[in-house]
């Protein structure tokens, strides 16, 4: 590629040297990207067309059989439905609570904003898998939460939070949201700080109260970033795994089994032999579902932002 550069005077020789260095600089990242990211993506499709237990060579090509099996497998659709329930609950809870927190913490007159921000952000940096185990203990039948509710007289009998299908899903959504709300809060705060101060001043001069300012100024101006936040939140929650694996293990009776856990079970922790081909096909279906949803939400982002916001890549012109 470097040969294309016109050589002849000193400047271009200097440039040519620079170009060669630039290629050397990006080479390691390109190798890692192609070898350890692109190759697995391509192969994740290839495996899905084989009947394969994960051991030995790929020989038993079965075409679309794994996919047709998915269509009729009710356990798959159960996990598919659970994933959507979790995503919907997670999205509603985390986006709204994070917005309220951000609006409160954005007040420049509030003292100790930094400390509050740290406290509410703290769960984000902790390990989800560890949180799942700690929470399993807190919400166990003899766990802290039941003892607490008994102590303040709200209940007489311990509740089996994790043995009830509906309660277990609610708990999963609340704990998952609690863990990630800090990130969404920072997203909202970033959006709030992008609103110019003059806008608020103009509203005040026009006699708008704080509720009116929120309703007619702040929230409409947050719409573009809100659409981006929606996209990020939905896409990240569709692949929930760590928390489900450690908190409920998909139980009780698969009531909280999400797709990532379902796929893991068939690939690595099966009752019988591993079904890597089938698991891969389920993985492709999940990947395509996430892809279609992000296309739709990406389109929403594009529409709401009126094409004014730069997409990813403000740094590279």
């Amino acid at each position: 590629m470097a040969k294309k550069i016109k050589s002849g005077n000193g400047i271009s020789k200097y440039n040519r040297n620079k170009y060669i260095w630039a290629y050397i600089f990006i080479l390691p990242q390109i190798i890692v990207f192609f070898g350890f990211s692109l190759y697995p993506i391509v192969m994740s499709y290839v495996y899905s067309f084989y009947d394969w237990s994960g051991i030995g060579p790929l020989t038993n090509f079965v075409g679309l059989k794994n996919y047709t099996r998915i269509l009729t497998e009710s356990s798959f659709w159960n996990a598919f439905g659970n994933t959507f329930v979790y995503t919907a609950g997670f999205t509603v809870v985390s986006i709204s609570v994070a917005l309220i927190l951000a609006l409160v913490l954005n007040n420049p007159n509030l003292k100790g904003r930094g400390i509050y921000r740290t406290v509410y952000f703290l769960p984000v940096v902790t390990t989800m898998a560890i949180i799942g185990i700690v929470m399993q203990n807190i919400f166990g039948t003899q766990g802290f939460f039941n003892e607490f509710l008994k102590a303040i007289g709200l209940i007489d009998q311990s509740i089996s939070w994790l043995s009830n299908p509906i309660l277990a899903m609610i708990l999963l959504i609340i704990i998952g949201s609690w863990k990630e709300i800090g990130i969404t809060m920072i997203y909202w705060l970033t959006g709030l700080q992008m609103i110019p101060r003059e806008v608020y001043e103009a509203a005040r001069i026009d006699g708008a109260g704080s509720w009116q300012t929120l309703r007619y100024i702040t929230l409409p101006l947050l719409k573009p970033i809100g659409a981006t936040i929606l996209l990020l939140t939905v896409v990240s929650s569709m692949r929930v795994f760590d928390l489900v694996k450690t908190l409920t293990e998909g139980g009780p009776y698969f009531a909280t089994e999400t797709l990532e856990l379902y796929i893991y079970r068939f690939a690595f922790a099966p009752d019988g032999p591993s079904q890597v081909g089938f698991a891969s096909a389920a993985g492709v279906v999940l990947g395509l579902t996430v892809f279609i949803i992000s296309l739709i939400l990406g389109w929403v982002v594009y529409k709401v932002s009126g094409q004014k916001r730069k997409p990813l890549g403000g740094g590279i012109k």
Binding site: Y39, G54, G283
Partner: peptide, 17 residues
């Protein structure tokens, strides 16, 4: 562009690799 390719269950190929 490659970033936006929907990916399947990539941990299996990574493990095999």
């Amino acid at each position: 562009a490659l970033m936006f390719i929907p990916s399947g269950y990539t941990i299996i190929p990574l493990y095999e690799l």
